[in-house]
């Protein structure tokens, strides 16, 4: 799925952006548990999480995930945004809950990382 479609489906606010709208995201990983991200995710995934802390960005970077979405409109603190900039992670905020955000992306055709 193109990044542009993810942004549109989630009515997301773009906080940092290091990809073009046409770049493809293959899979989605949705969790607040960072070890689950490391265990189950694939690269070229989007991480959807309610954990709006530096740890989410750090974990995404280690796992080669280039797009992170924070749910429920939760705004990250400055160090988290700075880390996203440093690691060139595209960071989005969606007003939707985790459940709704996942539902909207699923409806648009995105699927969970295969185990």
């Amino acid at each position: 799925m193109k990044l542009e479609r993810i942004i549109h489906s989630l009515d997301a606010v773009v906080i940092t952006k290091f990809m073009s709208d046409g770049d493809e995201i293959e899979w989605a990983c949705a969790t607040d548990l960072m070890s689950e991200v490391l265990y189950y995710s694939k690269d070229s995934s989007v991480l959807i999480t309610g954990l709006t802390k530096q740890q989410a960005i750090r974990t995404a970077d280690i796992a080669d995930i280039r797009v992170v979405v924070f749910t429920r409109g939760k705004e990250p603190d400055t160090p988290t945004i700075e880390l996203a900039n440093e690691k060139r992670i595209t960071l989005l905020i969606t007003p939707y809950s985790m459940f709704t955000a996942c539902g909207r992306l699923y409806e648009a055709g995105l699927r969970c990382c295969p185990e």
Binding site: D32, S35, K53
Partner: peptide, 15 residues
């Protein structure tokens, strides 16, 4: 609360 401690760390290292 920091997103850790789900009991997957050691299994993940082994994996």
């Amino acid at each position: 609360e920091m997103g850790w401690g789900s009991g997957m760390g050691l299994p993940n290292m082994k994996k």
